[in-house]
């Protein structure tokens, strides 16, 4: 067994898991968004799961670090929290914050993180930015709400797991990256009863269209913010 010390607590762990996974199992919360239990590789893209490891010059993403014997970890140092708050503020600055009309209200990962880190959902520090979508989102089966999407990649990962290849994809690049599906012919999509992407989405950014009504999507969300 590998012995690791996290925030002064000694824990024993087996091999083959990341530090983040181990901590979460032991009930030590580290903010995270793109990490998906059971997936072979974490994309390490959300940049939330930073921890300080003794001997490392800067905070590291715990989803990419295998625990080693004698590792000494702190999850709540000032610089770790600074980066986590900064990352969350950035994510919120492009998120359409309209919780009352969002199906994820009260079970939303962003709300949880904001509470944990003490970051207001509508930060005054950064302006709100809107993406240029520029990609055909109109789709017979899917309803995408890119203004909510945090690009955690979970929907793409579970789709790949269920279908061997992914019907969902990132399109475009950089700031304008969106999740979309290119195949427009419903007959060629094996989507009828697989709702994996819908269920995994932590922010209600993707629906199957026939379920859109119950998801309060009769009208596309107003943008920019209505008061």
């Amino acid at each position: 067994m590998i012995k690791v010390n996290v925030d002064g607590r000694a824990i024993e762990v087996g091999e083959g898991q990341s530090l983040l996974a181990v901590c979460l199992q032991q009930g030590i919360f580290i903010p995270h968004l793109c990490f998906l239990e059971g997936m072979p590789e974490s994309p390490a893209s959300c940049r939330l799961c930073f921890v300080d490891i003794q001997g490392e010059p800067a905070p590291v993403a715990s989803c990419k670090v295998p625990p080693w014997d004698g590792m000494v970890v702190r999850t709540d140092t000032e610089r770790v929290r600074r980066l986590q708050k900064s990352a969350l503020r950035l994510l919120l600055s492009v998120h359409h914050v309209d919780c009352r009309n969002c199906p994820s209200n009260k079970k939303c990962v962003l709300q949880d993180l904001a509470k944990f880190l003490g970051v207001p959902l509508k930060s005054k520090k950064l302006e709100h930015l809107q993406r240029e979508i520029g990609v055909e989102l109109d789709h017979p089966l899917f309803q995408f709400v890119p203004e909510r999407c945090v690009l955690c990649e979970k929907c793409i990962a579970v789709c790949r797991q269920h279908n061997d290849f992914s019907l969902l994809t990132f399109a475009k690049r950089g700031f304008n990256t969106v999740v979309t599906c290119f195949e427009k012919d419903p007959d060629r999509l094996p989507c009828s009863d697989c709702r994996a992407c819908v269920e995994i989405c932590p922010v209600s950014a993707i629906f199957l269209k026939n379920e859109a009504a119950e998801a309060c999507l009769d009208q596309p969300p107003p943008f920019p913010d209505s008061p």
Binding site: R47, A87, L129, L151, F170, G174
Partner: peptide
Amino acid sequence: QNESCGKCTFCRIGTRH
């Protein structure tokens, strides 16, 4: 920011700010 791949939060959104 134009050439950012868009994967990680800081580069994707931070450089845009």
